[in-house]
Design a protein around this nucleic acid. Structure first.
Lengths: 186, 186
DNA sequence: CTCCGATCGCTCGGATTCGAGTATTTGTGC
DNA sequence: GCACAAATACTCGAATCCGAGCGATCGGAG
């Protein structure tokens, strides 16, 4: 079980038992779909895996109307423990990750100086837009809930700001020639 | 074809035809395994996919001694074009990604104030260590190749610095009470 | 000259992932 | 009271991913 969505599920069930569809809906309501990739397809797989590990268990299967049955899952004692361990580990140990932008920047040379500047400028614009949305969302959320519950947005904002600053700096460096384009890089 | 490793392969073949094992070796030599997840298993799948798309093609199959045959692949004209488009798109359009730390921070509450501070402190230490390595590696590399070829390391360093700064700030905020721990968060 | 670890180069299959599809029901505007 | 969008709830199969091998060869120590 490596999928962080599993952690999200445990975290939700800490509050109260739910059926899969409700988990997805709740995660989206709380904006946690910015932090977890929540796709329904994967969700059912993840739930099955959590059951296999003994961290959650089916509580009841209710049928409302003629819709498909809903199986409600609740946390086990082991699941409760696992959740904390899981969060703790992910906070403690930086994982090697491979953001697509990092990959792309490795081959920035291929765009040529003018192409690189154009592409980076567009990225900067998009980053500014999404930063605007995040900041607004954060402000609104803070009126509803304590800061601790939206602290991950602050992290996301900081990282986006850092990226934006770097992108702008590189644009400047290319234009001023501080970042030279050697022959070998087309 | 979504795997960025495919982009890395196209980028390598731009220089000269190679067989899969040599691709992996070259990527590692150049330290690009920090930017691309290069696992041999996936590599062969990715190469097959690139052939299917018509972006690379088998050039020859040589047999040296009694070892398994090596199939050498080279770029096609379509592959050359696709590579540029690929880099351009990834630079232009920020992708929604889901770093594990972002997920974990969403449930930071579960660790309690003391637990959170402890875990964050450990992360900070690890980040400092890996920053040290990255900076040293970058310095060394700069003596060998032009800056453009290691510019992705500068990005990685900046992002790690931003994360470290944020982590240290949150530790301070928890300790000073500026980041309060409401009852609901255990 | 012979043993052993490192390197070469690839295959395989289990596990995971997720988009697209299905089918019902509720709500809304006209 | 009817059409139509949205929400409810889940299944399925195709694609992808990747760790764990596997067998050969090479280089160097003794």
């Amino acid at each position: 079980m490596k999928n962080p969505l599993g952690m999200a599920v445990l975290g939700l069930l800490l509050e109260s038992p739910l059926h899969p569809h409700a988990m997805a809906a709740t995660l989206r309501e709380r904006g946690l779909d910015r932090a977890f990739k929540v796709t329904t397809g994967s969700l059912y797989d993840v739930v099955r895996a959590l059951v296999r590990e003994g961290w959650i268990e089916a509580r009841e299967t209710v049928k409302v109307g003629a819709r498909p049955e809903r199986t409600v899952y609740g946390l086990t004692a082991a699941g409760r423990e696992e959740f904390t361990r899981w969060v703790d580990r992910l906070v403690r140990e930086p994982q090697a990750e491979f953001p697509k932008f990092l990959s792309a920047v490795s081959y920035l040379g291929a765009l040529g100086p003018a192409g690189a500047v154009a592409a980076l400028r567009e990225r900067a614009d998009r980053l500014r837009a999404s930063l605007g949305e995040m900041r607004a969302g954060h402000r609104d959320a803070l009126e509803q809930v304590p800061r601790l519950f939206v602290v991950e947005v602050e992290y996301a904002v900081r990282m986006a700001e850092a990226e934006l600053a770097w992108v702008e700096e590189v644009v400047g460096d290319v234009e001023s020639g501080r970042l030279a384009w050697p022959e070998e890089a087309r």
